Simulated assay, not measured.
Amino acid sequence: MDTFDILFYHIFQYYKAQKSKKANQIATFYVSFLQCSLLLLLGVFFAKFFGKMHMDTMSSDKAWTLFVLVTIFIFFKNWMQYGGRKRKVLNAKMLKNKKLSYNIWMIWLLPVAILGLTGVFLQAF
């Protein structure tokens, strides 16, 4: 199990008690949003880094198109991955670890902090 699986499970367990029918959708959206924000952070970092090194590898329009395509792929992959069997396997593995060890507000602030860091990278370079 990787970090995204653990975060998915914690979000899923938190919202399962409150919104049982929407818990899987919320957790899948969270993991997808987190992965896309990390992708954006890396993309901005490398774009600014390559710009400072005077390397012309890809135009801005092509980079944004690639980002949108990869984002769609990430949402589809997570929808397929966490839709059924994988979630049941995660549930079985995490049954012995019933209590949530992460604060839900800190989990939701993680992608927001990553987007803030992305904004700092955009302004700094």
Rank of each mutant, 00 (worst) to 15 (best):
Met1Gln: 04
Met1Cys: 14
Thr3Asp: 00
Ile6Glu: 06
Phe8Gln: 06
Tyr9Glu: 02
His10Thr: 15
His10Lys: 08
Ile11Met: 03
Gln13Met: 04
Tyr14Val: 01
Tyr15Ala: 00
Lys16Asp: 03
Lys16Gly: 05
Lys16Glu: 05
Lys16Thr: 13
Ala17Ser: 14
Lys19Ala: 07
Ser20Met: 10
Lys21Ser: 04
Lys21Asn: 12
Lys22Met: 06
Lys22Trp: 08
Ala23Arg: 03
Ile26Asn: 06
Thr28Gly: 02
Thr28Trp: 02
Phe29Val: 04
Phe29Leu: 08
Phe29Tyr: 13
Tyr30Val: 01
Tyr30Glu: 04
Tyr30Ile: 05
Ser32Pro: 04
Phe33Val: 03
Phe33Ile: 07
Gln35Tyr: 04
Cys36Ile: 15
Cys36Phe: 10
Leu39Glu: 03
Leu39Asp: 08
Leu39Asn: 11
Leu41Gln: 11
Gly43Pro: 00
Val44His: 08
Val44Ile: 14
Lys48His: 01
Lys48Thr: 11
Lys48Val: 14
Lys48Tyr: 01
Phe49Met: 14
Phe50Arg: 12
Gly51His: 12
Gly51Ala: 13
Met53Leu: 15
His54Ser: 12
Asp56Val: 13
Ser60Glu: 14
Ala63Tyr: 00
Ala63Gly: 01
Trp64Ser: 15
Leu66His: 09
Val68His: 08
Leu69Asn: 06
Leu69Ser: 03
Val70Cys: 14
Val70Glu: 01
Thr71Lys: 06
Thr71His: 07
Thr71Tyr: 09
Ile72Thr: 15
Ile72Val: 05
Ile72Trp: 00
Phe75Glu: 00
Phe76Asp: 08
Lys77Trp: 08
Lys77Phe: 10
Asn78Gly: 07
Asn78Arg: 03
Asn78Gln: 09
Gln81Val: 10
Tyr82Gly: 05
Gly84Lys: 13
Gly84Glu: 10
Arg85Gln: 12
Lys86Thr: 13
Lys86Arg: 13
Leu90Asp: 02
Leu90Tyr: 07
Leu90Arg: 06
Leu90Gln: 04
Ala92Val: 12
Lys93Tyr: 11
Lys93Leu: 13
Lys93Trp: 04
Lys96Pro: 02
Asn97Thr: 13
Asn97His: 11
Lys99Ala: 00
Leu100Lys: 10
Ser101Arg: 13
Tyr102Gln: 12
Trp105Ser: 09
Trp105Asp: 03
Leu109Phe: 08
Leu110Asn: 02
Leu110Gln: 00
Val112Tyr: 01
Val112Arg: 00
Ala113Tyr: 04
Ala113Lys: 02
Leu115Arg: 09
Gly116His: 08
Gly116Tyr: 10
Leu117Val: 14
Leu117Glu: 10
Thr118Asp: 08
Val120Glu: 09
Val120Ser: 07
Phe121Cys: 11
Leu122Thr: 15
Gln123Val: 14
Ala124Leu: 07
Ala124Pro: 02
